[in-house]
Design a protein around this nucleic acid. Structure first.
Lengths: 353, 353
DNA sequence: CTGAAAGCGCTTACAG
DNA sequence: CTGAAAGCGCTTACAG
């Protein structure tokens, strides 16, 4: 292994000068810089990161805690985080696949000392849990997780606004009996989407019909939910599933039962996964910019790390787009819903589309 | 920050004893162990990773280099890698989204000193490139990338066997004019799948018809390929697309042109993405255990790290499964193709299903 | 079994 | 501008 001493000897200078020349910190004559650089190149010198970390107290690394990874959503999220990290010269230490709070806490603790901050999205880790685990000196940013005390920065998708927009779209299309296939109990996204659905119905006082069934955000649970719906004596004329995977499960069940979409029942989802526009009929849904969610969260965290505790905590909500396709009876129009707004306002439950 | 010195003072012992007691290395009396543990707990002591890395020359971290992340495949891959890493107490430093060799090399170099080994899957990094970048002391394992000189361990999906099996299935179903929508030129998976298709045709000497069009592994390119196919004066009676995304694009184009699947043309893909069984008709395809690919690659790498250069390099190929669905004219049978075999044999081009 | 001390490779006041 | 030296927090022969 070639160390800074070897370079210093080769260049005929002190290790201090090597450090200064290579890092661009402190003044160094051109002559010395040149000699150091050629020596470093000749010896293929690579500074030892561990030693740098130890002395500078900085790892240039971000920890990323994710739930069990399944599907497109996470690859997009990581993609956004990675691109933002790369452009800032930060490294990413990722950990996923923990099934409960304990495992998540272990994963998080084992990152301490290796990272300058953490990005967290986990059904098991909310603001309270994260605050308890994290040392004061390590900033953390929550993704798609609400922090009640708002003492941690969070970045979220506008689940409420998207669900509101799609429900309102169905109402405007003339559907009056809209069922909702909700996501798992306790899931933040699921709660917000349910809230958007209910708020839109509440705004249209003359349409009081409401029907709810729980799913697990999987195709299978969507299929089962649709079977339940088909068995109702009083069937809905439209179904809004809390994500596209469940909507696809519904579509499968409807096809099987010879129930035509949208003629017999309209169908809408959430996420705009790539396949949504390839199914028959193409699926009305809400487009979510997942990679941007990751990128924004990383940017926020980077700022907090740089400012070292001086940065203001904040909540940010990312806009969604309503994507209207044939499954709700009409064309292929894409309507933006709203621009990013502070979370405070988003949580008031006021329609914004 | 609380250091090992603080714990030593609190427990009334030397730092050496604290280190020994906490790490379980070297003999320590129960009395000392107890005092150290309570002191560590009371002070919430967490060993500084950077200092440990510096002195032990071990990071307990694996670097993972991936191409631009798109789709389900990568979340599954990372999932498999992460689970295997967790069970060995290893951390994961991931980097993706580099568009060329230079960027990949920079990413890889910036990992040096932070990782004990690297896992690589990148269209821009083959065995030769990786060997040039990596210091001798850092082992590397290639995923789905062939190393000509076989001086690096690699773990791959049996693309050849899967493509052979699906093509043979079409031939046995009686299709004689099978077109292939290939993946990008120079892509390893694409090359192997093409080879499997051609080898299966070659084995059935009486079926000489062959037609090839290049795609980019995207739905859009599959759609365009199908448009080309539809324009042929002499149309094929079956299409084998090199991945499911392109097969879905084909299906979309066929539906649009009122060409019925499988009545007018049979269709098969590769990957068995979740949606494959939900489209109409359900898609015949080849199932790939992506998370296992990641897990196996990590396990191999971990062994090489432990053995420190003494480990034998090896090639491993993971079996695939042919999944027969309605898009090729029949039921829902699932047939395994083969067990994992050494890459040497796999590369002979002998049919194994 | 235990402790004093060396040393991992680097950065950064400090003095010149 | 440059170099000698201290020190980051830890592990591990070494001597007792």
């Amino acid at each position: 292994m070639v160390t800074i001493k070897d370079v210093a000897r080769e260049a005929g200078v002190s290790v201090a000068s090597v450090s200064r020349a290579l890092n661009g910190t402190g003044e160094v004559t051109d002559e010395i810089r040149r000699r150091v650089e050629t020596a470093a190149k000749r010896l293929k010198y690579v500074p030892d990161r561990a030693a740098q970390m130890l002395i500078t107290r900085s790892t240039r690394t971000i920890g990323v805690l994710l739930p069990d990874l399944h599907g497109e959503f996470f690859s997009e999220l990581i993609r956004g985080i990675d691109a933002a990290a790369r452009s800032r010269g930060l490294h990413l230490l990722v950990s996923s696949s923990h099934g409960n709070v304990q495992e998540a806490a272990v994963a998080l603790k084992s990152m301490m000392g290796r990272v300058d901050g953490v990005l967290v999205m986990s059904p098991h880790v909310d603001g309270r849990v994260l605050r308890r685990i994290l040392p004061r000196s390590i900033p953390g940013v929550l993704m798609n997780t609400h922090d009640r005390r708002a003492s941690l920065t969070s970045v979220s998708i506008d689940n409420f606004g998207g669900a509101f927009a799609v429900t309102e779209h169905l109402l405007r299309q003339g559907y009056g009996r809209i069922a909702h296939v909700a996501g798992p109990d306790g899931n933040f996204d699921a709660q917000e989407r349910l809230r958007g659905y209910q708020e839109a119905l509440a705004q249209h006082a003359h349409r009081k019909w409401e029907w709810l069934v729980r799913g697990e955000f999987t195709e299978e649970s969507g299929y089962r939910a649709a079977r339940e719906i088909l068995a109702l004596s009083e069937r809905p004329d439209a179904v809004f599933a809390a994500n596209d995977a469940m909507a696809l499960g519904c579509l499968f069940a409807f096809n099987e039962a010879n129930v035509r979409v949208p003629r017999d029942v309209a169908l809408a989802g959430f996420d705009d996964i790539p396949i949504a526009r390839f199914v028959t009929p193409p699926l009305t849904t809400v487009r979510v910019n997942t990679s941007e969610l990751g990128a924004r969260a990383l940017d926020r965290l980077a700022v907090e790390i740089e400012q070292g505790g001086a940065a203001r905590r904040s909540g940010e909500v990312l806009a969604t787009e309503l994507v209207v396709r044939a499954s709700t009876g009409t064309g292929d129009v894409v309507r933006p819903t709203q621009a990013a707004i502070p979370i405070r306002r988003a949580r008031k439950g006021v329609p914004r589309s």
